[in-house]
Every structure is written in structure tokens, then in C-alpha cells.
Design a binder for these strands. Structure first.
Length: 573
RNA sequence: GAUUCCGUAGCUCAGCUGGUAGAGCAUAACACUUUUAAUGUUGGGGUCCUGGGUUCGAAUCCCAGCGGGAUCACCA
């Protein structure tokens, strides 16, 4: 990609200069008092035309159709697009037609922010439009926007679709593809409806550390950083579970946190290195109570986004109204493979995995092996919301042992559309049991499982002071939003998904070239020749550069003085 | 990390078995007072991702790298 300015960018900078010469500030400071919005006019003008006899709108020019002394343009504001009609003699009532002929027709471009005052009317073809009486430039755009065209059937032509460009330049994406804004509006509704629901129950929103000395609460590889003053490593949290439980110890009955978690693992269409989770802990409850709470909560969320609890996700219609199907982990494996793994030891599980064609390695313990079978054979079948309950103790070091079933813990995960979206326990509050579980994790870590949990002495100390019986829940917000907005990639529900850094070509400023003696009018020519830095220029053959300068001068028909050969040679000293 | 596809104008994309780089939109000029993917005429605009190789000759074939997509693995 060329680093020098494109022809269109140069033209827009020239327009900027001409605007200033005409006494028009392309970036005015004053407030612009907007009184109307595109969507509102579209919805209400025909019923209440009298309300729109004097309107002020602001937004970007998205298309222009100029026909001599009259023009149509489309103005896009935060709510949508509306056509505006400009007539030369209306916006320029006097002799001076500069505002229309020069400013609007020549110096304004697609992408510029403008303000218009006028009245709403219906054109001969029946389109609601604003007849402009006053036009103001609010902000000049120096880069041309991609022009996405939509025809009468709503077909998109010349779409701005390259995912890389859309994610890297989300500001362009949402400008020219405003329909994607709805995903983020719905994301906000998911979060705000959950928060409202929790607050109404009297639960307390809290914030806990993101920089943690011990990364606990989940099985994942962390990002490590370093604190200079304390001269110690710190980890970006992979979970906030252990801190929220400390707050239950502290005496809060219900605490919840929406926040970013960070996991130093793979990136794909369902994983971003930082992702949002909601965790909530309620004292004196158990995981059975939590299932009912989740059903209520998710129905509220689905209704907040869609008005009904039924959500179309791909080919499936998913109903978030409870109660949801409940299936124990072992029963679910039995149901979808016909194999009863409940009594198997590690060796038998390993054999079963081999028979099912599931790859395993020596670091995997019993819990992990069962999880492998579940992931491979069960998960994708769970389309309607389904609770999988009662996990083997080995894979869940923070959950309480099952009240009746030996070797299991009180845990459920909620699966929807074949994906896990929530995880909940009756929390382990027996400090001695908790210490033993951490010790088992250390053994797994010793076997090479770098996702095994670390010992957290302070958390154990808190439990030793006493934590009431508690149930806790975590929900992956990004995945929930994907479900609620029918998106298959996490990137579509994140404004700024993680990307590899863009390779920036170094470009020297014009001053750098002028400092070594290049006349300013020749700097763009050097850039055009591919010399973006002084170093690049100095590495070239001086004689060839001198000759090429002459060639470029001729080719570009430049009316500038050719520098003397000695001057050019001096650049290279 | 593996496999695979892709990278050409500001944007969307053509470009055959290797032979001087194309279209639409955008942009510039002119015309046009109700258009709407406005229209008509005439222009300008390119490091064909980067670096090597093969060849008389590479956007095209080969190798390597960079970036992206998809699938898989790890994971939420």
C-alpha cells in the first residue's frame, strides 16, 4: 500500500486550504444545535408534518447528486439517513453564489460533516427530504469513505466487506455499514438488562483487581506483566472468582462484576485474548437455585433484545424461556455415545477415548479425559438451552462436593446452540477441602498441565475465616451477545477485536527532506519516486536520482525549477 | 501452531496456456431545477503485498516472508 497521499487525499487537502481562504473554518468550535434526527423524521413526518417546518440536522454527506443549480445529497446522522435538497438560490439568496457553486459543489466531499437548517417536504417521487435553507460545514473529511451503494431492493453494491479492513477501521465500517451498529446496541441491551435485573434483586455491583499477583479462578494461561515499583510479576486476571468470593466472606449477600478477562491462548472466531465475563455470587444459595435464576435472567435478556424469549440463531430457533432441560454429565455422555463412563478409572477412560477416536496425552487426568469425551461427542447436540450438571471432582477444584453423589461436584454449565455460555457451582467453602483441591492441581501442574490452578494462600485464609454457603455463576458476555445477535464470530460483537499490528511504513516528514537541502516542492516528487525516508534516499545512487527527478518533472508536467546537479549531490552528503 | 484459500486504482472486483494493466463506483472538468445505484460527454489515477528465483519477457509460474479469511487443534 502506498504511504504517500493519494490523489483524492491531496485534492481534499487543497479544498481545505481553499475553504480557509474563503474564511470558512473547516473545523469550527461552536456548538451546533441539532433539533431533528433522520429516523424520527422518517417515522413521524407524514403523520405530524407541522412539527418539521423548521429543523436542524447534522451528519455526514454520504452521496451527492448534483444537477446544475439544484442538488440532492444524503445526510447520515446517528439514527439513519435522510435526503436533503439544496437549491442554489435558496442557500445563496443574494448575488454571491459561492456557497453553492464553490463550497458545496467543489469543496465539500462525501464524508464531510455538515449541518443543515430547513424544512421537511416530500419530493415528486415521494421521498421525505429536507429542503435546505442554510448549510454549514462542521468537519472536513480528508480521507474518502468507501461508497457503499444500495439499490431499491436493498442489494448492496461495492460493499465494504473485507473483514480485516472492517475490524481495523471500525469507524469506517460503522459509518458505511451502519446496520452493524445494531449488534452493538443489542450488546448494550444484553448488559444493561442483566444489570437492571441484578440490581432489582438487591445485588451489589463491584470491581475487583485486574492485575493479580496469583492468577486463579480458572484454568487458562495468563498474560504476565511486571510492576516496576514493587519489582514483581503481575498477571492480568483470567478470572475474578476468588476475589468475588472474598467479598462474600466480607459479608455481602450478593456481588456481581462485569469485566474483561485475559487469556493468553489461541484466537479464532470464538476466542479473543480479552473477553467480557459477568460473574455473580449469592450467599446462602445453591446451584439448583442458580438454575432458576439463570432461566429468569436470560429470558429477560432475550426479551430486552427481541421483545420475545425466542431468538433465531442460524437455522435454529432458541427459546430462552425456562425451565431448561437438565442432564448430568455422565447421563449426557451415555445419551449421545451409549457409553457409561461413571465408574471408569483413568486407564479405562483413556481406552474409551482411543476407541472414540479422541486424541489424548499423558498430562490429562480423569476429569480432563471425561471433558474431552463430552466436548467431542455431546456438546454440539445441545441446541436448546440445556444444563449439564454434576461434573467429576477432578475437573472442578472450586466447586463443592455433591451432596449425595460420590466423586462429583455441584456444578452446572449451560449450553446453548452447541456452545457453553454459563458455568455455575455450589461454591466450595470448606477451607481444608479447598486446600487439598489446590494441592491436586499442583500435581497436575507438575505433570505439565500449565493450565492447572495455582495455590492462593490468601484466598484460603479468607475461607478459613468462614464463607457462607454460596452459589456462583459466570456468563461469557461475548458469546451470549453472539447468540442474541445471531453472529458466528466474536469479532463481530467486539468493537475492536485483537489484530496483528499493522505494518507501518516509515514516512519522513517534509521537514526531514528540507533539512538536508531538498526544496519543498520536490519533496512530493521524491515521495512519488518511492523515497519515504531520508535514509532510503541516501541509499540510492545520486546520479540516478538526479536523472529520475528530471524524468518525473517531465512525466508529471511539473512547472517547478529543476535543482542544480550540485544541489542534488549535496543531499547525499 | 497445522492445513487451505486470498492479497491488482480510494472502494468492489476482472485480468485465459507468461507478451506494454482493465471495468464499475469514487475522483477531476463540462452540461443539467425533484433526483435517488441520477444521467451524458471527456480526463486523471497503479511499488499488481514484500523479497528472491525461472524466463528474452512475470500481476500470471516456483520459493520464502508479511498480512488476512476459512477449517482444525488449545480454550470461554
Amino acid at each position: 500500500m502506498s504511504t504517500a497521499l493519494s490523489e483524492q487525499e491531496i485534492l481534499r487537502r487543497e479544498s481545505l486550504q481553499q475553504l480557509r481562504e474563503l474564511g470558512i473554518n473547516p473545523y469550527p468550535a461552536e456548538e451546533y444545535k441539532v433539533t431533528a434526527f433522520a429516523q424520527d423524521i422518517a417515522d413521524n413526518f407524514e403523520r405530524f408534518p407541522d412539527n418539521y417546518k423548521k429543523v436542524t440536522l447534522a451528519g455526514r454527506i454520504m452521496t451527492r447528486r448534483i444537477m446544475g443549480s439544484a442538488s440532492f445529497a444524503e445526510l447520515q446522522d446517528s439514527t439513519g439517513r435522510i435526503q436533503v435538497y439544496l437549491k442554489r438560490d435558496d442557500i445563496c439568496p443574494g448575488e454571491d453564489k459561492t456557497l453553492y457553486n464553490t463550497v458545496f459543489k467543489k469543496l465539500m466531499d462525501i464524508g464531510d460533516y455538515v449541518g443543515v437548517k430547513g424544512f421537511v417536504f416530500l419530493t415528486q417521487t415521494g421521498e421525505i427530504s429536507v429542503h435546505v435553507q442554510e448549510l454549514a460545514l462542521l468537519s472536513k473529511a480528508l480521507k474518502p469513505l468507501p461508497v457503499v451503494k444500495r439499490d431499491e431492493e436493498g442489494n448492496i453494491h461495492d460493499g465494504f466487506t473485507d473483514p480485516e479492513m472492517r475490524y481495523r477501521q471500525r469507524y469506517v465500517d460503522l459509518t458505511v455499514n451502519p446496520e452493524y451498529k445494531q449488534i452493538f446496541i443489542n450488546r448494550s441491551k444484553v448488559i444493561s438488562s442483566m444489570r437492571d435485573y441484578f440490581n432489582k434483586q438487591g445485588w451489589f455491583e463491584v470491581e475487583t483487581p485486574i492485575l493479580q499477583p496469583v492468577h486463579g479462578g480458572a484454568a487458562a494461561r495468563p498474560f504476565v506483566t511486571h510492576h516496576n515499583t514493587l519489582d514483581m510479576p503481575l498477571y492480568l486476571r483470567i478470572a475474578n472468582e476468588l476475589y468475588l468470593k472474598r467479598l462474600i466472606v466480607a459479608g455481602f449477600d450478593g456481588v456481581y462484576e462485569f469485566g474483561k478477562m485475559f487469556r493468553n491462548e489461541g484466537m479464532d472466531r470464538t476466542h479473543n485474548p480479552e473477553f467480557s465475563a459477568m460473574e455473580i455470587y449469592i450467599a446462602y444459595k445453591d446451584y439448583i437455585w442458580m438454575m432458576a435464576m439463570v432461566e429468569q435472567c436470560l429470558e429477560i435478556v432475550a426479551r430486552a433484545v427481541h421483545g420475545i424469549p425466542v431468538v433465531q440463531v442460524g437455522a435454529n430457533e432458541i427459546n430462552f424461556a425456562g425451565p431448561y432441560e437438565k442432564l448430568s454429565m455422565y447421563d449426557s455422555i451415555q445419551k449421545y455415545t451409549g457409553i457409561d463412563v461413571s465408574a471408569m478409572d483413568e486407564a479405562a477412560l483413556r481406552l474409551t477415548c482411543n476407541e472414540l477416536g479422541i486424541e489424548v496425552d499423558s498430562t490429562m487426568g480423569k476429569g480432563k479425559l471425561i471433558d474431552e469425551i463430552f466436548s467431542a461427542k455431546v456438546e454440539s447436540n445441545l441446541i436448546q438451552p440445556t444444563y449439564i450438571t454434576d461434573y467429576p471432582i477432578e475437573m472442578t477444584p472450586l466447586a463443592k462436593k455433591h451432596r449425595t453423589k460420590e466423586g462429583l461436584v455441584e456444578r452446572f454449565e449451560l449450553f446453548v446452540n452447541g456452545k457453553e455460555i454459563a458455568n455455575a457451582y455450589t461454591e466450595l467453602n470448606d477451607p481444608i477441602d479447598q486446600r487439598e483441591r489446590f494441592e491436586e492441581q499442583l500435581i497436575l501442574a507438575g505433570r505439565g498441565d500449565f493450565e492447572a490452578m495455582a495455590m492462593d494462600e490468601d484466598f484460603l485464609r479468607a475461607l478459613e475465616y468462614g464463607m457462607p454457603p454460596t452459589s456462583g455463576l459466570g456468563i461469557g458476555i461475548d458469546r451470549l451477545v453472539m447468540l442474541m445477535t445471531n453472529q458466528v464470530t466474536i469479532q463481530e460483537v467486539l468493537f475492536f477485536p485483537q489484530m496483528r499490528p499493522e505494518k507501518k511504513a516509515k514516512v519522513a516528514t517534509a521537514d526531514d527532506f528540507i533539512n538536508i537541502g531538498v526544496p519543498s516542492e520536490w519533496v512530493p516528487v521524491l515521495n512519488k519516486m518511492g523515497f519515504n525516508t531520508v535514509e532510503e534516499l541516501k541509499a540510492a545512487n545520486p546520479n540516478k536520482v538526479f536523472n529520475d527527478l528530471g524524468g518525473m518533472r517531465k512525466k508529471l508536467k511539473l512547472d517547478i525549477i529543476m535543482p542544480m546537479k550540485e544541489v542534488v549531490m549535496a543531499w547525499f552528503e
